[in-house]
Design a protein around this nucleic acid. Structure first.
Lengths: 273, 273
DNA sequence: CAAATAGTGTCTCTAAGACAATATCAC
DNA sequence: GTGATATTGTCTTAGAGACACTATTTG
């Protein structure tokens, strides 16, 4: 660096210009066992998402994605991981940046733009981790998630025991031809988080359809049927198992292990190739 | 909003917490006619990108993506469009968010995180628009762009008349399993812009391969051969025309118009379906 | 006619969708 | 054997890749 650059930098003050606050919000997805009535039936899988109940205004007592403010000397990815750990005690090894939400007025506290991330927790980790609210979060909970077209309306439904949240969204393209979701109606979700959840789910579905991120829902070793159920739970579309097996075969490696004592033919265990 | 929320907001001061400066950087791609020697040969197409020469430190006289600081009451998309217009006089109707670059130390001025965008200018607009440097930008220029694997190295080459810039990058996955580029060597590009350009090009290529963003390089009406040349210029891979035509046919609609006076068989004009 | 580009036909092979059939466990 | 799930086979159809061939203009 030459003298001119050094001089310039010495007198340059970023603080002289307006700056927004920057946050991250993380949509953590997992799977939830669903008991299916019937003699000796295997449990099904449902997609679920981790939310926190806000303990502080704004949107006190509403449900929100975990997340928080970016700090100096961390990347947005590190911030996402840190905030998630602080607020819910969940730890993730995988993140995808979904988008940036910067609509003026999206946060009543003022000029705040948010980086949305997506993550996936495996059933294993989901079970072993003690999810608990802390910090800004009064409480953290897994919500079963549905995202369907009902009579021309795109509806997001989130359920956790006695709590029911919902939102209607619409996929549009903005002034710069970028696809995004617009919130038509919102019941119980904080900020513009219905929009973020819809975007994240849209992203997740296309990834899982193409056999990406699909393995992150399961432990190291899994059966092909489990893998298929992941895809069906995420996309909410049934698949024919013969065809699914053929397609997935390029992405998995056989092991010599089998499931045991399940009351039906044992299934071979596979690993990701 | 209830009284508790109102009270809270009245006393809440975002300024009490540290905030980064936020910028946008825009990778604008276009096509450049390339004269091919030979009797009656049609010109070829080369991918090019719009860069500015920095008129101010830091990186004075280096070449950089156009872009600048986010202002209150605008979205990052609007900021990208505005800065592009201010610095280069180019106007775009299309943007894609490529990623956010927040590595501490990426800007010597301090804590600055950047939103990278991608855009495409049609040959038409590219020709009609008077590209000119202004503002922070001493000068704006189109650079021919190559992005190839040479002896195991991934090399970015940018050429504009007498100016030659280059960078070697490497595709890696970061601590959160996110794909990104790492700069191995850099000659003449400011900041981490080699990384951003590589990401943008990677994104653009996969879009164009799947017949998205491909139409934005051309005017309303075009021939199938032109469309094919766009794909070949962007991906730097040849395609067999019979196969290309079959695949693209689902995405285009015939018109009754033909090219004229070209010294060979006229070509039918198509529009995007 | 020659040069150049536009456009069609067809063969092969791979992969997807649908569906039928067989295999193997626990009880 | 029965209930349940696991796994394989196969028929049909759609699409990709490769390549040969025909068509139409201007000079």
């Amino acid at each position: 660096m030459n003298q001119e650059e050094k001089n310039f930098l010495q007198h340059y003050r970023l603080e002289d210009y307006p700056r927004p606050s920057v946050t991250t919000d993380i949509a953590v997805f997992g799977l939830h066992q669903e008991i299916i009535p019937g003699y000796r039936r295997e449990p099904g899988k449902k997609l679920c998402i981790l939310l926190i109940r806000r303990g502080m205004p704004p949107f006190k007592d509403c449900w929100a994605l975990p997340g928080g403010f970016l700090r100096p000397s961390e990347t947005v990815e590190l911030c996402a991981g840190r905030e998630l750990k602080e607020e819910t005690n969940a730890e993730v090894r995988l993140l995808r940046h979904i988008g940036i939400f910067s609509q003026p007025g999206r946060d009543p506290r003022g000029w705040i733009i948010s980086n949305a991330f997506l993550s996936v927790l495996s059933e294993e980790k989901l079970a072993s981790m003690e999810i608990q609210g802390a910090d800004d979060a009064a409480c953290a909970k897994w919500f079963d998630l549905e995202f369907q077209n009902i009579q021309g309306k795109t509806v997001l439904t989130l359920r956790s025991e006695e709590i029911l949240l919902s939102a209607e969204v619409k996929k549009i393209t903005n002034a710069f031809a970028m696809p995004e979701f617009e919130i038509i109606e919102n019941n119980g979700l904080a900020f513009d988080h219905a929009k973020i959840i819809a975007s994240a789910l849209d992203y997740l579905r296309s990834e899982v359809k193409d056999f990406r991120l699909i393995f992150d829902f399961l432990p190291e070793q899994f059966t092909l049927t489990e893998l298929q159920k992941v895809q069906e739970a995420v996309t909410e579309e049934p698949v024919l198992s013969a065809n699914f097996r053929r397609k997935i075969s390029y992405y998995v490696a056989e092991t010599d292990l089998f499931t045991e004592g399940a009351g039906h033919r044992p299934a071979r265990l596979y690993t990701k190739k």
